[in-house]
Every structure is written in C-alpha cells, then in structure tokens.
Amino acid sequence: MNPTPAIDPIQTHQIAELKHRNALTTLRVDPTGRYVAAGAQDLDVQVWDLVDGNQFTLTGHKSWVRSIDFSADGNLLYTACWGGVVKVWDLSHDIPGMKRSFQAHQGAARWVRLSPDGKRLATGGNDRLVKVWNAETGELEQPFSGHQRHVYGVDFHPNGEHLISQDLMGVVIVWNLKTLVKQRTIDASMMTGYDKKFAADMGGARDLQFNADGQLWASAGITKVVNSFAGIQDPIIVVFDWTTGEAKQQLRAAEKFKGVAWAVRFHPEGFTIGAGAEKSGKGEIWFYRDKQESAFHTFAMKSAARALDLVGNDRLAVAHADGFVRLYQMTAKSSEPEQDGKEAESSAT
C-alpha cells in the first residue's frame, strides 16, 4: 500500500471531467466530499456523485442558479437564483427532491450560505438586503438593510455570531447576529471601479469565505477597471483581517491576465487558492503563500473558471464556462491507475 501522497500545488493536474451541455455558473462540493453541485446557464442544478459516479438533475428554478451551499452531512442542498428564489433540496433519498422553496429577494438572490450550526441561512440580493432565515422552516428571521447597491456575497463567521456581506461598491458590512445591528463597515473599494467610458460601476464579491478559525476572510473579484465592458480589468483576491478589518493581502494574477477572480479558498495546509476567467476565455488557478501577493504557482486551464471548491484536501473541483466540471489533483501523478472513486470520476460524463 502506497503512503498518502503529499499535497503539492505545483504538481496539480487534471484527473476527471464531468460534462454538462451548458456553461456552468457556480459550483459547490459537499463537506463530505461526495457531491459536486453546479448551476448553469439554464434552469437546472446538476449534481454528480463522486462516490458512485452517478449524476442527476434538480429542476424547478425559473432562472439561473447563482449560488449553492450544502449542509455539513451533504444531505441538504441550498440553491439561490437570479429570480430571487432560494430552494432547499433533500439528497438523502433515492430520488432527490425539492424540500422547500421561497422568494428570498426581489431581483436576484446572488448568494446563499448555511450557518456553522446549520440552523440559519443567509442570503444577499439585488434588493440591497441581507436576510437571515430559519434553515429548517424557511421563515425569515431577520432582514438587514444598509447596503446602497446590489449585495454580491455573504458569509457567516465561524463563531456563528457574525455575518459579513459585500456589495457592488466594495462596501463590506459586519452584522452582529446577537444584537441584530450593523457592527462595522469595512472598505473594500479596491474591488470596484467606475468605467468612465460607459458610465457604469463594476465590482462586487464573486466569492467570499472565512478561513477555519475566523481570523481571516477573503473576497474574490476585480480591480483596476480599464474597460469592463470588454472584460479588461485585473482579477484580485483580497484577504482581510477579522480583528482589524484591514486588507492584509491583495493577491494578484500575472499582469497579462485580464479578467475576473471568481473563487477563493483557504487550504488547511496554509496556502490560499484562487481561480479566475481571462477575457480570452481561458482560466487559471492561482496558489498563494502567506504574506505573498503573487502566486507561487499558476495552473493554466483551457476554459474560464467560474467557481472552485475543495474536494477533501487533495483535489479541486472547478466549474468552467465550457460546461465542464473538472477535477484537479494537487499531488504528484500516480504511476499506478487511479483507485476507487477516482475511476468513477474519470468516467462520469
């Protein structure tokens, strides 16, 4: 029996492709590492079972799914769509089905996240509101108003007592879930830009996530807007310090890469992973070490990345604009055939 290979981002390589007919919009991997769920430029949610290689489709949304989250056991799936609807899906039965559906926002619901204790959902949307819901009943517990523009992303602090949200203009608000008030506002204006030629704003969090101990959070998006209507701006991932609220690191791609950072994850071994879409249609995964703002390794991909998540600690799942979920392994290539579930992954189409 071979020892478990060491995680080495420089060894990252593709191990499987999961095909859908339409461009993907988002993706999430359940915490157990079994399911990959993706939204697409259609009305459905695609779910791949990485254990048995099966794939199934969840239907019911009337608009594109923009954001997805899972319960800790992977049995419940939460989806939010451009139509403002949030749906809860039960994957624990032989035939997965919709458990609940509610109109969360007027206009798009851009984000949905489950609280660390699994009892509450947070959503943010184009009605400029952040809302906290009872995850079991779907009842609204608390709306938060304070953003002046569309809310792009929300996430719970691991302590469960706070929630952050970021809007189009780079305004980050920390909400206190005990006192139910706005606790502080944090400046992420480096993540927005006004396109003078077209007289429009561009920005927002395209991904948002705390690290495990809650000392940091990271937001992915854009900066240095030149001509955003043609996709000419720089991707950026900003890592914020929870205690001070200051931007601790501004992670960049190579200068020639113009586009959007669509994903960020903190890896348990201490490095940070980002992914983005270049205006040419290609994609990249970036790996950053602490205190460094340039990637120590960049992995090029043939199609734009629109979301990324960890599958366990050694694999990455990426949603691509060409309709594929691709799985990438962050260890050295095995000289022997892939074993167990990985064979199923490779053959799943």
Binding site: D195, A199, M202, F229
Partner: peptide, 11 residues
C-alpha cells in the same frame, strides 16, 4: 453603456 461584451447581465 450597452456594448456589453462582458458582464452583459450585470451591466
């Protein structure tokens, strides 16, 4: 501001 080769929907 309608020449939306990128971000057509947000713009």
């Amino acid at each position: 501001g309608y020449d939306t080769h990128a971000e057509n929907f947000n713009f």
